[in-house]
């Protein structure tokens, strides 16, 4: 009886076996990495906007308070995007003829709002109340990163459910005094943060991690 297979097939067969084993593990690792990479989460990815607005310039360099434009952040469920009027309150005076701001002037003229691309867009099945987070001592920078250093706006955090849970499970590791909410540079060493955090949890009546991770807290 003649040989059916070439001797090299032994090596090929063994390689296939190992390849299959590594293939399975590799696929899982790939899947894991992909779902957390900017491809999926858009962290650090700049969105194309109708107007190239720089938070770095307005907030960082000029020092305009967050609340000047996002007026409802503290009490509303939704941190609003300012209407064209807010922009024009300054830009009717300065850079009034800048070609970069033409869409803003057009919007004012036509009454059609600017169509900003939302950078932080949670899915509809996740209930999110912006005001409560501010009231309980979550700083802007905790979720939005150093906006004052962003020439164009991007997501600083992945906004995945596991990321949300990270804070909901241990709120004390992220809370800060209400007076420091809008302070972009606020940070404490870990031990001190835990101490302060625990005090704030008590003071602000923040619920325990167990209740904050109930399904119905976010999925109502």
């Amino acid at each position: 009886m003649p040989q059916i297979f070439h001797p090299a097939m032994n090596t090929v067969a063994r390689l296939t076996v190992f390849g299959a084993a590594f293939g399975v593990v590799g696929t899982i690792v790939l899947f894991y990495e992909y779902s957390r990479s900017p491809f999926q989460t858009e962290v650090n990815v700049v969105r194309e906007q109708p107007v190239q607005f720089s938070h770095e310039h307005h907030s960082g360099q000029l020092g305009i308070d967050c609340r000047y434009c996002h007026t409802t952040v503290e009490n509303g469920p939704f941190a609003n995007i300012p209407p064209t009027h807010t922009c024009m309150s300054c830009h009717s005076q300065i850079w009034a003829d800048s070609p970069m701001l033409k869409p803003v002037r057009d919007s004012l003229a036509s009454g059609e709002p600017l169509r900003w691309e939302r950078v932080h867009d949670l899915p509809d099945f996740a209930y999110f109340e912006h005001g409560i987070h501010i009231q309980k001592g979550v700083g802007c920078a905790s979720c939005h990163g150093r906006v004052d250093e962003m020439p164009l706006t991007w997501k600083a955090e992945p906004l995945t459910m596991e990321w949300c849970l990270d804070c909901h499970r241990h709120p004390e590791t992220h809370l800060r005094p209400r007076s420091e909410i809008f302070n972009m540079e606020y940070s404490l060493p870990e031990r001190e943060q835990n101490m302060v955090g625990k005090r704030l949890v008590r003071e602000y009546g923040v619920q325990s991690g167990y209740y904050l991770t109930n399904c119905t807290v976010c999925h109502r």
């Binding site: 009886m1 040989q3 297979f5 070439h6 090299a8 032994n10 067969a13 296939t16």
Partner: peptide, 15 residues
Amino acid sequence: LPRPYHPVFAVPGFE
């Protein structure tokens, strides 16, 4: 296994 090639397979009548 798998070992598709083996010297004994070459022997006439080994089938």
